[in-house]
Design a binder for these strands. Sequence first.
RNA 1: GGUCCCAUCGACUAAUGGUUAGGUCACCACCCUUUCAAGGUGGCGGUACGGGUUCGAAUCCCGUUGGGACUACCA
Length: 501
Amino acid sequence: MSVRVRFAPSPTGYLHIGGLRTALYNFLFARHHGGRFVLRIEDTDRTRYVPGSVEDILASLRWAGLEPDESPVHGGQYGPYVQSERTEIYRHHAAMLVERGMAYYAFDTPDELERMRQRQQAAGIAPRYDRSAMRNQFTLGEDETARLLAAGQPATIRLKVPLHGDVKFHDAIRGAIVVPYKDIDDQVLLKSDGFPTYHLANVVDDHLMAITHVIRGEEWLPSTPKHVLLYEAFGWTPPQFAHLPLLLNPDRSKLSKRHGDVAVRDYIAKGYFPEALVNFIALLGWNPSGDRELYTLDELIEAFSLEDVNKAGAVFDLAKLDWMNAQYLHRRVQTDLGSLIQQLRPLLSERGWNASDDYIGRVIVLVHERIHRLPEVVEFADYMFVPPRYDEEFFRTVWDDQSETLLRNLSSVIETTDPFTAEELHRRLNQFAAEKSIPFRRIGNLLRLAVTGKRVGAGMMDTIALLGKDETLRRIASLLSSVATLQGSPASDSDVEAQPS
RNA sequence: GGUCCCAUCGACUAAUGGUUAGGUCACCACCCUUUCAAGGUGGCGGUACGGGUUCGAAUCCCGUUGGGACUACCA
């Protein structure tokens, strides 16, 4: 039987980073085995539906390179792939279970159920549906049940869990799992609004869509016994289960918004590369060797195996993601500078900065080893596009009595440098430093102040060469005419604009 | 509270009974150097604890402790 797996998110908001990893493992497993990767939308809770979610899920998967083979938009022979369009199927199957005596009608109101739980809590017992004391098919009898149904009384259908015995199943990651029936609740399968719960819809769809492997988050492990029971009640063979370890916050709780961005959309917006994010999350909970970090999607497919998936949760460490993204940035600069230029230009335009593709490309090359994400260019190298703002603290540490004279001399050296290349600049300035017995460090810092305004930046000679002779001389002159202002506001935190020359 | 799952450096992980417990990120130091990075070299740092089984345990078993998930007519 050929492999068929599914990713089945609820459209309750943006695709979550944990959801992306679940989708990724499903995708890798499918591709590794030459199987099919199905996207199914589980929208059975109408109250939690968020418009736009499906579009975001699809767009995020596509961005990551995880295109489904079957989905609401890709179609397929097992559709529809949206659960709200399948309600008749679930109603039919729930009724089938009632007929077989594997499920039953219940008429309890939310208030009655709440009181039941309070009683149980007070008595110190686990809150569970009390089949023998509530209003249902068993306590009311067949005639009364039929009468209430005919009268249109709101009713749910609950799973009739056996009183004695155990459910056993095998998890590809966790091995054999055994749970006594007595610990399993009589789960609602069909809600009084006629919609199924997750448990019913999920099992019915996985069977009808010929899913062979259910690869999902560990949060589903506790309800898997119910699902197995459902397969048995229908007389179906359950799929293989594989429950993935959770993605964790730094405090080891389930990954959530409280500690930072969790939507894939946020990472796209911050300029992370899809191959970096995919590479990173692939290695959160799975590892083929332990001595290698960088994998292409094809290499991940080739190496992927459920046997190598870990059991313990994995903390999402942003610092390592940044490192990995930087690795991919270095690579892209070498192999595909054009795409980086295209990606960066809109961010520059937003600020009203315009430059040629060639110039943008050179700036990226100049600073790429100092940043992790491409959009950081905008903050890091703003001075490559607009006049510098002087960092006053840097000014105070660099500036002294002789700086003005020195700067004027440097201006002459730069003016007469030809060709205007980083190498020639370095040669001339070095020579100048030697002649005047000035540490090269002082020259570098002074020029850095004039040209960039700040302490940190790319190589000074390369920066000046790219900026050009005219602009460099202009900036030196600007600093010279700003000195009075800078010295006049010693306690101020704000940066000082370069003076127009 | 109940049920289930989990447990190797701060983080991600390798080692499927025999290694001085390996790699990556982070951190520290040094080299390189005009700043900051990148790169290179080195370092710090771990098998939660206690019992077994075995010639030999990170690895198998039991217990303890700790963490997590679940416990809805949400998924």
